[in-house]
Design a protein around this nucleic acid. Structure first.
Lengths: 296, 296
DNA sequence: TTTCCTTACGCCTATCGTAAGCATA
DNA sequence: TATGCTTACGATAGGCGTAAGGAAA
C-alpha cells in the first residue's frame, strides 16, 4: 500500500469518475485505473463497483475511504510536527528549580513560554539545589534555575535574575526604623543564617559580606530553607538576610527592609548542557529566557 | 513520504544501527541509508545524528517515530478492516421492525448478531408496517421484519417465525374453561379485531379464518395495535385473536388460550433487496438469521 | 455512436545490490 | 586497522503516457 494509491483512491471516491479524478491528480486515466487496481489487489478487496457507465463505492470502499483520509492527514501532520520539533516550535523539555526560584521567576518563565512556544511541553521538577546540578549533568533535566552553578565543564549558563538581599525582621524590632539597614547594625545581634549544606550559596554569600564589613552577628540558628528561616524570624529568635523574592511567601508578622550595603544581591542562573540536542530547549533559551547565542 | 520509508525509519530507530536494521528489512545498508536520506529530505529534517560510529535519534526523530509507528499500524488496521468489511465481518446495517416484532424476535436476532458478528453495527428502526416496506424499497433500510411482504419485485424474503394465534380473554370469561378454544365458540360473541389499515395482515388473516369456519363473531371494536386490543379485552369489551408473542406484553387481567383450529398462525418474514451491496447484511442473513442462499 | 473504464506497450524514473570511499575509535 | 555509514554505478522493476480494446446507454 502506498500513499500515492491512497491519494488516488480518495480522488476517485470523491469524484466517482476516473477521468475527473485523473484530472485532479494531474495524470491520465489509465495509470489511475492501474493504481486503484493495485490497491484493491494488495487489500484483497474491491473498493469500487464500476463499469464504463457508473462508478460507486462498495461497503469496504466506504469504510476504507475514512481510513485513507485519516492516513493522509496524519502523514501530513506528522511531517509538519517533525519540522516544528526540529525548530523547537514543538516538543518537550524539562526545567528544574529550587523552592526559592518557584515563587517569582519560574512562573514568569512558564507564562511567557506558554505564550511564545505554546506547543512545547515543559516538565517541571522542584528539588534542592545540589540535586539539580546532578540531574542536569546526567541529562535528566534540560535546564535548571539555580543560584549555585555546578562547577562542571560542558555547561553553559545565563544570569537570569539578580535580586537584592533584604533583611527580614519583625515589625517591633528596633531595626524596623531604618529605611535601609547597614550591616553594622547587625553586629552582635541575634541572627538567623542559611545552613551550609542545603543553601550553601546564601551561607557563603552572607558570611562573606559580613566578613568584608568586619561585622560579626550572633548566629543563633541555621535554617535550610527560606520559609523555615522566616518562621524563626517571626518567632522572635532574630533577624535574617533573605532574597527579595521571599516577600512572595507573604508570611504575616514578618516585614522586610533593604540593606544599605552595595552589591548585596543574590543571583539566579539558568544553566544547561552546551551539547544538548533539544531544539525545544534552544527555542526556550533564545525566545523565552532571552539568552543571546544559545547555540548547542 | 512512503510507507516503505516509514518502515525503514522505524527499523533504524529501533536498532540504532543501519546494518542490523538492513538485515531485519532483508536488504543491504546502502539503499537503506538512501531511503532514510530521502525521508529526511522530504521532511526537511534530520531524523538521526549519525557518524560511522554512533547512530541516535534527534528530537524530531523521536517525535516522528511515534507518528511513523502509528501510521504503519493504522495502515495495517485499515487494510484488515476493509477486508473484514467486504466479508461482512465488520460494518453496519439497518433493521426495521414493527412493534409486534420487537417483543421476542428482534431482541433474539440482536443478541445472536452481537455474538456472531460483534463488529457489525446494527441500526434499529421501529415503525408501522406500511412504512417499513417503503423504506426497504427506497434503500434506507437494509432489512425488515414484517408480517406483510411488500408486493414489489426485487425483494427477497425468508420466513423467520411462524407463531400460533391465540385467544386473548379475561380470566372470568366462560371461554377460559377451554384448553383449546374452537372458532365456533366465538360465534356471535363480542369480538375485538385488528383494524384493516394499521394491521391489514391480521385483519385479513382472522376474518379469512372465520369465513372458512363459517363463524360470525360480533365485532364490537377495531384496534390498530396489539396493546390497544388487549387493553380492550381487559376492559371486558370482548375477546380477541392475537399472536402468541402478545404474551410478552405481560398485561395483568388478560389470559391466553390456544385455538383448536389448525393452521391458525401468524408469519413473520425477514425481507431485503435482492441487489443490496452490503456484505454485513449478507453475513447477517446467512449467519444470524440462518437464511439459506442469501446471495445478493 | 458516444462515453469511459481497461488492457497493451514503450519510455523513463527510481530502487536495489555490488563495489569503492571515508571517517572514527 | 576494523567497523560502519555514505557515495558511485549498472541492472532491474514499476509508473506514466499514448494508443487500442470493449462494454453500456
Amino acid at each position: 500500500m502506498e500513499f500515492r494509491q491512497l491519494a488516488c483512491f480518495v480522488a476517485v471516491a470523491e469524484e466517482l469518475h476516473f477521468g475527473r479524478a485523473a484530472d485532479r491528480l494531474c495524470m491520465t486515466q489509465p495509470p489511475l485505473s492501474r493504481q486503484i487496481q493495485l490497491l484493491e489487489h494488495t487489500l484483497g478487496v474491491s473498493l469500487f463497483d464500476r463499469n464504463s457507465r457508473h462508478v460507486h463505492l462498495t461497503a469496504a470502499g466506504r469504510r476504507f475511504l475514512q481510513d485513507a483520509r485519516q492516513l493522509l492527514a496524519h502523514a501530513e501532520r506528522a511531517a509538519q510536527m517533525a519540522r516544528r520539533t526540529s525548530e523547537g516550535e514543538a516538543g518537550s523539555m524539562s526545567l528544574g528549580f529550587t523552592a526559592v526560584g518557584a515563587y517569582r521567576l519560574m512562573p514568569a518563565l512558564l507564562v511567557r513560554a506558554r505564550e511564545v512556544l505554546p506547543d512545547v511541553d515543559i516538565q517541571l521538577r522542584e528539588m534542592v539545589s545540589a540535586g539539580l546540578g546532578d540531574l542536569l549533568i546526567a541529562g535528566e533535566l534540560d535546564t535548571i534555575l539555580t543560584r549555585q552553578l555546578p562547577r562542571t565543564p560542558g555547561l553553559q549558563h545565563h544570569l537570569i535574575e539578580r535580586e537584592p538581599l533584604v533583611l527580614a525582621l519583625t515589625p517591633n524590632s528596633p531595626l524596623a526604623h531604618y529605611d535601609a539597614v547597614p550591616l553594622s547594625a547587625l553586629h552582635r545581634q541575634p541572627f538567623l543564617l542559611y545552613g551550609p549544606n542545603e543553601s550553601r550559596y546564601f551561607y557563603e554569600r552572607i558570611l562573606g559580606a559580613f566578613g568584608l564589613a568586619d561585622v560579626t552577628p550572633q548566629i543563633v540558628q541555621l535554617a535550610g530553607q527560606t520559609h523555615t528561616l522566616l518562621a524563626l524570624v517571626r518567632a522572635g529568635l532574630g533577624v535574617g538576610i533573605v532574597p527579595d523574592s521571599a516577600r512572595e511567601l507573604r508570611l504575616e508578622g514578618v516585614i522586610f527592609r533593604p540593606l544599605a550595603q552595595e552589591n548585596m544581591h543574590a543571583d539566579i542562573y539558568l544553566a544547561w548542557r552546551s551539547q544538548h540536542d533539544n531544539p525545544a530547549l534552544t527555542a526556550f533559551l533564545t525566545r523565552v529566557a532571552n539568552v543571546p547565542q544559545a547555540a548547542a
